[in-house]
Amino acid sequence: MSDPIWVEVCDAEDIEEEDVVRFDYGDRTFAVYRTDKGDYYATDGYCTHEKFHLSNGLVMGSVIECPKHNGRFDIPTGAAKRAPVCVDLTTYPVKLDADKVYIRIPS
């Protein structure tokens, strides 16, 4: 596996506070978040319970709730927080540069 690369997602302003957007790269899909405190994070796009995209879920503070069965994850760590989810989400580093959001993806 080669080194991870930084990939541009969108403008920082494209994600509302306490919200999430979908980002597809190649055949992979991610959820990129902005929390209530204004911090940006990224995780795998699909819930670990069933295949529903978390970008359709609700961000509450720093928690993402899956739209389908209301399982919850801690956004910064990806930790599963509420049933039915029991498997953690993979997280990805995020950086802001010149008001753009980048995530680091293992290539």
């Binding site: 529903f52 995209h53 359709n56 879920g57 739209p67 389908k68 209301n70």
Partner: peptide
């Protein structure tokens, strides 16, 4: 299914 989820949750 995907689109109605977030507004409904709110």
């Amino acid at each position: 299914s995907e689109a109605i989820a977030k507004p409904f949750r709110q």
